[in-house]
Computed example of a mutant assay.
Amino acid sequence: MTTLHTAETLIAAETFNQTVLSGALLLALPIAVLAGLVSFFSPCVLPLVPGYLSYVTGVSGSDLAEARKGRMAAGASLFILGFTAVFVSYGALFGNFGFTLEEYRETITKVLGALTIVMGLAFMGVLGGFTQREFRFHRRPAMGLAGAPLLGVLFGIGWTPCIGPTLAAVNTLAFNEASAARGALLTVAYCLGLGVPFLLAAVAFRRALGAFSWVKLHYVWVMRAGGLMMIAVGLLLVTGVWDRLIGGLQVWSSTFTPGI
C-alpha cells in the first residue's frame, strides 16, 4: 500500500506540475485575477452592480440591504457561473489556437502583445472611449434565482466589448499557453477576480456601497492602473522578456514537488 500510495503521489505531483506550474501560469494567473478586479471596478460594470443584484435575486433595489444573505449569495453565485461559462470558453478557444498555431506562436504573440499595449492605452482613455461601449440586450430574463445564470451568460456576451481590453489581455496570455486546458484555467482566474467582488457585494451590500463610493471617486486612477498593467504585459510579450521569465519559472517548477 505504501509503494502504491507513493506512486500515486508522484503521478499527482507530475500532473500538477504539467497542468499548473508549466508554461506561464505561475506568472499569468495573478495577472488574470487582477485583470478581473480591474474589470469589476471599471465605470461600465461597478455602477450596474446594484441593478444586477436586484435582477438575480428578485429583490427590489431598496430592499437589497435587508435581503437574506443566503438568497443574495445564491443569486450572485448563479450569475457568476453564467458569465464564467462564456469567458472560460473564450480562454479554451484561444489556448487551442495557440496550440494549433504553435509554428507561428512567437510572431502572433508579439502582434497580440502590441494589441494589448493599444488596448491598455484605450483603457486609460488615451485613445478615446470606443472600448467602453457595450452591446446590451434589451430583453432581460425573469427576475430571481431561475434567471440568474441566463443573465450571467448575457452579461458575458453583451459586456465583452466593454471589458474587452482586460479580457483581451488575458486571452492573449491564454494563446501564449498553447493549451485549451491552461487557457480555460487562466480565464477561471479572471472570473474569480471579476466574480468574487460581486459575491462580496451580495452578502455585505450595505458595506459594499461605501467601498463603491470610494472607487467611484478614484475611477481615473483605477483605469490608469489597469491600463498600465496591460501595457506592461504587452511590452513583456513584444520584447520576448515574458518568454525568458517563463524559462526561469520552468527551471524552478521542474524541481518543485507539492506536498500532496
Rank of each mutant, 00 (worst) to 15 (best):
C191T: 11
C191G: 08
C191S: 15
C191R: 05
C191I: 09
C191D: 13
C191Y: 05
L192Y: 03
L192A: 15
L192W: 08
G193P: 13
G193N: 07
G193D: 11
L194V: 07
L194I: 06
G195S: 10
G195M: 07
G195H: 07
G195R: 04
G195Y: 10
G195D: 10
V196A: 12
P197F: 13
F198I: 05
F198W: 06
F198K: 01
F198V: 09
F198H: 12
L199E: 02
L199A: 06
L199S: 02
L199T: 02
L200M: 12
L200H: 04
L200G: 13
L200D: 00
L200P: 04
L200T: 08
A201M: 14
A201T: 15
A201I: 12
A202S: 12
A202N: 04
A202F: 01
V203H: 01
V203P: 07
V203K: 02
V203Q: 02
A204H: 11
A204E: 10
F205L: 09
F205W: 10
F205T: 11
R206F: 06
R206T: 11
R206Q: 11
R206V: 07
R207M: 11
R207P: 08
A208H: 14
A208I: 08
A208F: 15
A208W: 15
A208M: 13
A208D: 09
L209D: 03
L209W: 00
L209E: 14
L209I: 13
L209Y: 04
G210A: 14
G210H: 13
G210S: 12
G210T: 14
A211M: 14
A211E: 10
A211R: 09
A211C: 07
F212G: 13
F212K: 02
F212S: 14
F212V: 10
S213P: 08
W214P: 00
W214L: 10
W214Q: 05
V215L: 05
V215Q: 03
V215D: 05
K216G: 13
K216P: 00
K216F: 12
K216S: 09
K216T: 04
L217Y: 00
L217I: 00
L217S: 12
L217Q: 13
H218F: 01
H218R: 12
Y219W: 06
Y219F: 13
Y219V: 02
V220N: 03
V220W: 04
V220F: 05
V220G: 04
W221A: 01
W221Y: 04
W221L: 00
V222C: 03
V222A: 08
V222P: 03
V222R: 00
M223F: 03
M223W: 00
M223I: 01
M223L: 14
R224C: 00
A225Y: 02
A225G: 11
A225T: 14
G226T: 11
G226V: 06
G226M: 06
G226Q: 07
G226F: 06
G227F: 08
G227C: 08
G227Q: 05
G227A: 08
G227S: 10
L228N: 01
L228D: 03
L228A: 10
L228G: 06
M229W: 01
M229Y: 02
M229Q: 08
M230Q: 05
M230Y: 03
M230K: 04
I231E: 03
I231L: 05
I231Q: 03
I231R: 02
I231T: 06
A232C: 05
A232V: 08
A232I: 04
A232S: 11
